[in-house]
Design a binder for these strands. Structure first.
Length: 1002
RNA sequence: GGGCGAUUGGCUCAGUUGGUUAGAGCGUCUCGCUUACACCGAGAAGGUCGCAGGUUCGAGUCCUGCAUCGCCCACCA
């Protein structure tokens, strides 16, 4: 391959009979990439590109947890279509790929690997563990990038970013500091969602809710009234019964609550009850939040383990008792139950309570349980020190920009969902007790705050043993070295002064050098929220940031509107004072053919690369984009992918054919400026159609109706260009005749006679005559060659389709344009996208061509119904008054495509035979096919009667409509006129059919 | 408890400002290995557009209610 313009291996080699994506895709991708077409370039001032709006998409970074799934393929497809389209429109275009470190998810993956080796991360220590994760990252990243390439993603790889690269790291720290300085970040001990397995706090959004069958247990708390003489509580013998789904938390109860309006309990308010077994006395109080109808109407209040109870506790200043350890085993507060897992403890407690007579009853109950979205362990609400972001002030501008329409959602229904969430936003718990991620840029000075830093040191020899907890200073005094603390311990700066800094500080502001960095990392979504600008260099004011920000479209799944989209909007506005993008395009979830969510663990997933290998990337892309509209889920079925593959093959063969027709001669594309009125009808028709298609596609793309755009090109290429124009072009190029002038055509020998299947004996003469086509251009008076139009329309179609099916179109375009003069661009990927501004629109040609097509169809229909052998020619009459000229010009095509010969185009129906004929009546045209020998009077009568009945029914419907005064007065004139015209047409058809029926012998 | 989406021929889906006879692919039936393509071509059958009301001259499309499935949000222990 000497000419590097051409990605095809060797243009002298004949094209394969079927499209082979495997032989094409990698080569074509390399061609694009080495040519630098993906590079997002900031245009030089004064150039034409500089005058255009830039188009930029920041790719949602896949997690480094593993390989891409089919959802990523959808993301790539949608985004690549938009990017390629804009690139072809001539817009400066940038698509930034990236990868997400995915804190908790990736940590889990690596921890699982360690578990196989019988280790935990604590065996390695933080630094070593991080190294292990990095090794994993280095392994996975090339796989991911290769997958994007296989899917055809034309991303600018030179701009690829990882969330733990320096710039995003800096962006994270800068944002954290800005928020801290603005008072938007605070540290506090709150009831948070704790995953006992991941051993970290989670935000509300990382918690999933599922229904579960459980029990409602009714527990009696004895009433206490003062003390006995010996100081022990004096039981009155009464009980208040509470209903609970979580009996094990009763040891953390600090009250029993009832609704103040609940008359059953009015007298109980203010009294004291006692918790069985652990014998703690707690008050009965009134709170509005209690539903009287539920359970007994009396509720145990556990502020340390239930969000609702926490709020009740706040209202009544109740103590908060944490009864569990971080691994969800019971702690010392649980007294005799200390050390057992929460569910074991539940079982033991229930048994004890029952034995002591405190368990009144048990009834089945369906409850909502909250689970960790990563590992599906039931989360535990737990009091814990965490970092939070105050969201209210951030949300306000994020609401405004959507309300004002500065950011629009596609489809727009998600706007309300977004707004609803934003309006009810809650503070965001951003700290995670993980080792993999952006470590919070907060330091504590051990020199100054050593007594306020609480250190938790796990036992290195026995991971089951409880960790040592002490202040930093105490830990040092007891002989633990600073190095050991740094390596194995975690610490919390309770009451210590946080030092927040973008740069890692060498020493504390007061001069002490003994600094401990906060060991929590940030929620992965914190850095994700900065993605639209941290990828472009922020916090530096880079040229890239200035030129590309705000970006154009954020394309992602609707399932992460809150997790991601909302945060990008808020943080973009907060950090840069401007929206991160103007459009949010949301795609749905890809499901398998049974409608199941694809999941690796369930084995219901589809590997996109397997599909690519079997059917080609273009087929997969076509399928993904046409299988549903924006915002809707789709089922991916193999059959549908086959459809995409077949289409690629259709294109391939159509192009192969056009190229073979062109042969060795170069063909100039038709002159875009010249008049086309001299061209034959079918040329004007297909040019007008491709023009209309271009306009329609342009419009659809602007509205983000990408699937519909792709579908329309499919329809055009297959059903109009290939099925009709190419077939007609064959007739024109090869000829079947010499006598172009008369419109009626003779065979090559000049004496080809009409042939009818049977019957007309004289008709069947010489079986070979018509089947000996000659591949040669029609010369002279036979009219212009169809090759320029053929090449032009095909070339336009490839352009239109390129964003959706980039590989096959580029490959074919290169091969095709090698045969065409006057194409300026070097590659389809950068060729101008058609927008339907060539002035080829010709409604009359479209109407006339449709007429010809209808005539051919009518003849084919009769042939099929009468079982005429496909290869045989039959005589046919086409009766028309107004359209004779068109029909005569199209006669050669009617002949060949309808296999009708001799073909008589006549003006008077009286000149057509009446006996033993099949008739079809079209708009202003009657097709008559003599069927000597094949003719069955009764069958024909039945056929005509059915047609008449259908037509009459239709006429009746229109008549009723037109007779309606309301319709005449209220419907637009255009609609009324159209109905009238339609009625006239139908009536003519009825008349024609009736006449044919009358001609039938009795 | 709120909200959203889906419901169109056997299957999978289009149908986006209400307006001719509701489309496609697959599947089915009939025919065809015609030199671009059997990953194909020709023809055909197949739909009261979930149900019930309503608005309108006119509803698959707008409104109301209901049903089934799916999803999201929500502190009923």
């Amino acid at each position: 391959m000497t000419d590097d313009r051409r990605p095809t291996t060797d243009d002298r080699q004949p094209m394969a009979k079927a499209y082979e994506p495997q032989a094409t895709e990698d080569r074509v991708y390399q061609f694009w990439e080495t040519r630098g077409y993906f590079k997002g370039r900031i245009p030089e001032p004064g150039t034409t590109a500089a005058a255009r709006d830039p188009f930029c998409i920041i790719m949602p970074p896949p997690n480094v947890t593993g390989e891409l799934h089919i959802g990523h393929a959808l993301t790539d497809t949608v985004e690549d279509i938009l990017i390629r389209w804009h690139r072809m429109l001539g817009d400066p275009t940038l698509w930034v790929p990236g990868v997400d470190h995915a804190g908790i998810a990736t940590q889990n993956v690596v921890e699982k690997q360690l578990a196989k080796e019988g280790m935990t991360r604590h065996d390695l220590g933080r630094e070593e563990f991080e190294r292990r994760v990095w090794t994993w990252v280095e392994r996975v990243r090339p796989i991911i990038s290769n997958q994007h390439r296989r899917l055809g993603a034309s991303a600018d790889w030179s701009s690829e970013v990882f969330t733990l690269d320096d710039t995003p790291q800096r962006a994270v720290r800068a944002t954290f500091k800005k928020m801290f300085d603005d008072g938007l970040i605070y540290r506090g001990e709150r009831l948070i969602n704790w995953c006992p397995r991941c051993r970290t706090a989670l935000s509300d959004l990382e918690v999933e809710h599922e229904e579960q069958q459980g029990n409602l247990w009714y527990i009696r708390y004895p009433v206490v009234d003062g003390k006995n003489a010996d100081g022990s509580p004096r039981l009155t013998g009464e009980h208040i019964t509470v209903a609970t789904t979580r009996p094990e938390t009763y040891v953390g109860d600090t009250a029993v609550a009832v609704n103040p309006k609940d008359e059953r309990y009015t007298s109980w308010i203010g009294r004291t009850v006692m918790l069985p077994v652990i014998l703690r006395e707690i008050p009965v109080l009134a709170d509005e939040a209690i539903e009287m109808e539920f359970g007994t109407g009396a509720v145990k209040v556990t502020p340390g383990h239930d969000p609702t109870d926490f709020e009740i506790g706040q209202r009544h200043s109740l103590p908060i008792i944490n009864v569990m350890n971080k691994d969800a085993t019971m702690n010392a507060e649980a007294g005799p139950y200390e050390g057992s897992d929460r569910y074991e403890a539940r079982a033991t407690m229930l048994r004890d309570l029952e034995e002591l007579g405190y368990l009144k009853k048990t009834e089945p109950h369906t409850l909502q349980i909250s689970t960790c979205s990563r590992c599906h362990t039931v989360i535990e609400p737990l009091m814990s020190w965490q970092w939070f972001v105050t969201m209210g002030p951030l949300a306000k501008p994020g609401i405004d920009v959507v309300r004002e329409g500065r950011i629009r959602f596609v489809p727009d229904r998600f706007e309300r969902i977004y707004l609803n969430w934003m309006e009810n936003i809650r503070d965001w718990c951003v700290s995670r007790q993980l080792w993999w991620g952006h470590r919070i840029p907060v330091w504590y000075s051990a020199d100054e705050d050593g007594d306020n830093i609480i250190v938790t040191l796990p036992d290195q020899r026995d991971s089951k043993a409880p960790p040592r907890v002490a202040t930093y200073n105490e830990m040092l005094r007891s002989g633990v070295s600073r190095e050991t603390i740094l390596r194995y311990a975690t610490w919390t700066g309770v009451d210590a002064t946080p030092i927040v800094s973008i740069e890692t500080p060498e020493q504390s502001p007061t001069g002490g050098g003994n600094l401990l960095q906060e060991n929590d990392v940030l929620d992965t979504w914190f850095s994700s929220g900065l993605w639209p600008f941290s990828t472009l260099g922020w916090p530096e004011q880079t040229p890239e940031l200035k030129y590309w920000y705000p970006t154009s479209v954020m394309e992602t799944g609707y399932d992460i509107i809150f997790l991601w989209v909302s945060r990008m909007i808020m943080l973009g506005l907060y950090n840069l004072g401007d929206i991160p993008y103007s459009t949010v395009y949301l795609h749905g979830t890809v499901r398998n053919e049974f409608g199941q969510r694809m999941s690796k663990s369930l084995g219901t997933g589809v590997d996109p690369l397997e599909v690519v290998e079997k059917y080609g990337a273009d087929a997969l892309r076509y399928t993904l984009i046409t299988s549903s509209g924006p915002g809707n889920d789709m089922k991916l079925s193999e059959q549908r992918v086959e459809m995409g593959r077949n289409f690629a093959n259709k294109l391939w063969n159509a192009t192969r054919f056009v190229i073979s027709m062109i042969g060795d001669t170069n063909v100039a594309p038709i002159d875009l400026g010249g008049p086309i009125s001299d061209l034959p009808l079918e040329d004007r028709w297909i040019l007008s159609r491709v023009e209309g298609l271009s306009r329609s596609v342009d419009e659809l793309m602007r509205k983000f109706e990408l699937g519909e755009a792709a579908r329309q090109v499919y329809e055009f290429v297959w059903s109009e260009f290939a099925d009709w124009y190419i077939e007609i072009a064959k007739v024109r190029v090869r000829g079947t005749s010499g006598d172009g002038a008369s419109g009626l055509v003779r065979g090559p020998g000049g004496a080809e006679a009409p042939r009818v299947l049977t019957g007309a004996a004289d008709a069947d003469r010489g079986s070979g005559g018509a089947e000996a086509p000659r591949v040669q251009p029609v010369a002279g008076d036979a009219g212009p060659s169809p090759l320029p139009v053929l090449a032009y329309v095909l070339e336009r179609s490839l352009r239109l389709l390129h964003p959706v099916m980039p590989f096959v179109t580029e490959e074919l375009w290169q091969a095709l344009t090698a045969k065409i003069a006057g194409i300026e661009e070097d590659a389809l990927i950068i060729a101008a996208y058609p927008r339907g501004e060539s002035g080829f629109s010709d409604p009359a040609a479209e109407r006339e061509m449709e007429m010809l097509i209808d005539v051919v169809r009518a003849i084919r229909n009769i042939r099929a119904e009468k079982k005429v052998e496909p290869a045989k020619f039959i005589e046919a009459y086409v009766v028309a008054d107004g359209a004779r000229g068109v029909l005569e010009a199209g006669a050669p095509y009617i002949e060949m495509l309808g296999r009708a010969r001799p073909l008589h185009i006549i003006g008077d129906i009286g000149d057509a035979p009446k006996d033993q004929v099949a008739t079809a009546v079209l708009e202003g045209i009657t097709v008559i096919v003599p069927l000597m020998g094949l003719f069955d009077v009764e069958a024909e009568r039945a056929r005509l009667q059915k047609l008449i009945a259908d037509a009459e029914a239709e006429a009746g419907r229109i008549e009723t409509k037109l007779a309606n005064e309301q319709f005449r007065s209220k419907a637009p004139e255009k609609v009324v006129a159209a109905e009238e015209e339609r009625l006239a047409t139908v009536r003519t058809r009825v008349d024609g059919l009736r006449a044919s029926l009358a001609e039938l012998p009795e």
